[in-house]
Amino acid sequence: MFVPEYDPAYDPLEHLEQLKVRHVRHTLNGHNAIWVPERRLVISDRNLRSELLHPTLAHECDHAVNDDCAGHHPRNESRANLHSAFRLVDPALWESLTALHTDYDQICLELGITRRQFRAYYDYNKRLAAAQERRERFGNAVYLNPKMGAGQWQRKLEVA
């Protein structure tokens, strides 16, 4: 599966143009934007705030890239949130902002992403970190990330 990478010059409008997908602004009730695969068309809400237009169109671009069917299917929505976050989020800036701030809305504004894209990227990084952690049990103790030698572990948990 193709996983996009961060590009500081990424422009979803240019990406839609490359994919030969038309973009139209129209009044939508209840949605920021929708992907219409039969017409190769993305419709975005004309009342959408300017800071949400860029990440919303990036999300819809992912639907167009994967040629998703119409409707909001959870798997397609999750993938579109994650892949659009990959395109928009600078990993170094992510690390510094999440280390400094606890206000996630402020981080979303700084990064230029939506809350759902933030959540998808956050969950992805959390799963990645958990997969890299290694736990081993010796006797009645569990060692987190053990290495060779006595006392070389990140954490020791006593198990009954």
Rank of each mutant, 00 (worst) to 15 (best):
D105L: 10
A130H: 09
D62P: 00
N81W: 01
H54I: 03
R75A: 14
R87N: 03
L144S: 03
H73V: 09
A129T: 09
H54K: 12
Y143N: 04
Q106M: 11
H31S: 12
A64G: 02
H31W: 15
I43F: 00
H59M: 04
L82D: 03
R79V: 08
A85R: 01
L57E: 01
H72P: 01
S44A: 06
I107A: 12
E158R: 12
I34R: 01
A58M: 03
I43P: 00
V3K: 12
H23K: 05
L82P: 07
L157W: 09
G139K: 07
Q117D: 06
D7Y: 15
L57K: 01
A99L: 13
K20H: 10
N66D: 08
R39Y: 13
H83Y: 02
H54R: 12
A99E: 13
L19Q: 15
W153M: 12
N140Q: 14
L111Y: 01
A80K: 00
H101T: 05
A130M: 10
R39H: 14
R134H: 09
H23R: 09
L157A: 08
R39C: 02
H83L: 01
Q117R: 03
Q106L: 12
E133A: 06
Q132G: 06
L48S: 01
Y10W: 08
P4V: 10
L16Y: 03
E38A: 10
R40M: 09
W94H: 04
R22E: 12
I113D: 07
H26E: 13
H54Q: 12
P74V: 02
M148Y: 14
I43M: 05
V3A: 12
R22V: 04
A130P: 00
R39D: 05
R25K: 15
M148F: 15
A9R: 06
E14N: 11
R46Y: 11
E136M: 11
L157F: 14
C108N: 07
A129Q: 10
E38P: 11
E5P: 06
E133G: 02
A141P: 00
D123A: 04
V159T: 10
A85H: 02
Q132C: 08
L93K: 14
Q18W: 07
M148I: 13
A70D: 11
L52N: 04
P8F: 10
L41V: 04
R127F: 09
L144V: 08
K20Y: 07
C61F: 05
A129I: 02
C69A: 15
K126A: 13
H59G: 03
R127T: 14
C108G: 06
W35T: 00
H72R: 05
D67V: 06
N66V: 05
P74G: 08
P12D: 06
S50K: 14
A141H: 12
P37N: 04
R116Y: 09
W94T: 01
K20N: 13
T102H: 14
E133I: 06
N47K: 15
R116N: 11
T114N: 00
R40L: 10
I34Q: 02
